[in-house]
Amino acid sequence: MYDFIKDPSIYNFVRGPLVWIAFLVFIGGSIYKIREMVLLAKKEKVVYPYMDLKLSLRSLLHWLIPFNSRNWRLRPVVTTVTFLFHIGLVILPVFLLAHNVLIYESWGISWWTLSEGLSDIMAMIVIGCCIFFALRRIFAPEVRFVTFADDYLILAIAFLPFITGFLAYHQWLLPHKIMVILHMIFGSLMLITIPFTRLGHMLYFFLTRAYMGSDQGYRHSKDW
């Protein structure tokens, strides 16, 4: 097993085709899923007539800014953790120096990056948040009651790329190369699973929020 992972062809595979496949599946799958849902919504008589861009953006904005909706204010701890987690989740992979170097080597383009120290802190925050969510699933009664095995699974899918990336950066636990391979495998896994599991809440968030915002806004009410 150990020798198998050390085989350079594995590294070449995960660095090349696997990442390509992952991105294709992620982008293609996301477009497919959103398209399906939008078409499905079109069939319903009551969704489209209510949709309103201004009201949707209003609702989205209120919920995307921390502590700007009443439920965010009521639960400061969960709110802080949720926002830190999701900001880290989205910003860190895109602006990480190491990722940029890889992209530069391949295509010759690069963009602004985070400093290494900041990336390290952000990675730790994301990992910490994951642990918080797991503990919340175990210890908060109302969350435990509605937790299924796949909730832990999707949490693990989000957790693994970050923990492996963090360990690879510090070269702890496993040899650097093996950790990087694991990191790439888990990263690809996350990208592939986003459109097809409930990680897809990343995509549907904007649709469901827009619908509820428009619906409530149409009734001269608000939903934050």
């Binding site: 639960r75 969350v143 937790t147 809440h201 619908y211």
Partner: peptide, 17 residues
């Protein structure tokens, strides 16, 4: 066949908020 029915099923992350 109803988006209002399917979207919540596939979105709910069981956060209990």
């Amino acid at each position: 066949n109803a988006a209002r029915f399917m979207a919540p099923l596939e979105t709910c992350i069981h956060c209990a908020l």
